[in-house]
Design a protein around this nucleic acid. Structure first.
Lengths: 184, 184
DNA sequence: TACACCTTTCAGGAACCTATGAAATTCTAG
DNA sequence: CTAGAATTTCATAGGTTCCTGAAAGGTGTA
């Protein structure tokens, strides 16, 4: 009986390890660092509040590393600090709702990475237009550049609208996307 | 007159430079390397077929670097090799349709990065379920893990359906997304 | 206040990724 | 077939990011 339980635990751990590796793999997709992802992976899959030492042991990484990455995770809002009565250590637990995690990460990346891109792109367009129009009906090559920048802007603006529904419209997206996906 | 033209050209180049930098910035978002993105940026914004030497000069990067990254761009399908009569050099030009570029990159990333993730995730689920059911009605902790893996799978599957409409449904996505965005 | 226990910070080093430039290869014209 | 031009490959250098472990910083208890 004991051996069967031990065996089960071992296999559970194996699956967990694979899951954490998966999280690691996904990290580049989500734009967070691999170790940060691994830590979050452990917290998500176990569904428990773990201490720094738990995580250090589980992933075999240093204290400093865990500390840094945990604080980043808390900053992102993916992980919460929790306390246990009579224990001075901090414990950490992950959000459980996948949609919430997704929108959190995506909206922050949008703000940090996409919004600045859009504004420089708009500046490009404006300067090109100004130059182009000022200069004897614009050289054909300038016209072409203006067209290309506009195409790109049009595309990104569309994407932005879509993103807006995702991140701002309190889960209106969830249904919208669900409908869209099911209709196929 | 000459100076005005020269002045205009200078300014055009400035805007182009900013555009190329922008492409560079976006590269992490699209999952391609920065230099690859810069090269593609030049090709896209100029809209012309350029030789390797043109690109080397424009971006001040080495021949080998240009060669490697151009061949990757051709592999991705973002850039086409073209020939000019009476010129032994190869010339390269970018796709012009933003949607086409987007779907090209996205569908390839999906195939390379997301599909493998989905299949390992499914393996995780199956193994967890097998273990969980085998073991006297499953420990609560195992049940929780199964639930979490399933939540994630559900989410990703939804996303996959959505992606399917994007990449396989010959531009059906374009209208779908357009509608979705405008409706807001 | 001093101690014990955690957590955070940070300099140094390891690992990883990318660019260079010269050598090797391929290609074309004569 | 050869010469010369164009391209590709690849070992090495250079740069960047990431991790570690030790020291410093907080916080609650005696």
């Amino acid at each position: 009986m004991k051996t069967r339980k031990a065996e089960a635990a071992r296999r559970l751990q194996e699956v967990e390890d694979r899951f954490v590796d998966l999280w690691d793999t996904m990290s580049s997709l989500w734009g967070i660092s691999p170790t940060m992802a691994r830590i979050h992976g452990v917290l998500y899959i176990t569904g428990a509040a773990l201490s720094m030492d738990d995580i250090m042991a589980r992933l075999a990484i240093s204290r400093g590393n865990v500390s840094m990455n945990l604080s980043k995770l808390v900053e992102w809002g993916l992980v919460r600090r929790v306390h246990k009565r009579g224990d001075r250590r901090d414990y950490y637990e992950s959000l459980s709702d996948v949609w919430e995690m997704f929108t959190l990460v995506a909206s922050q990346r949008k703000r940090r990475e996409i919004d600045p891109i859009l504004s420089t792109l708009r500046r490009c367009r404006d300067e090109l237009s100004a130059d182009g129009l000022g200069d004897e009906k614009a050289e054909p090559s300038t016209q072409q550049r203006i067209r290309r920048v506009n195409d790109l802007l049009e595309f990104l603006t569309l994407m932005e609208n879509l993103a807006h529904r995702f991140f701002e419209g309190d889960h209106g997206l969830k249904t919208a996307v669900g409908l869209l996906a099911e209709k196929s």
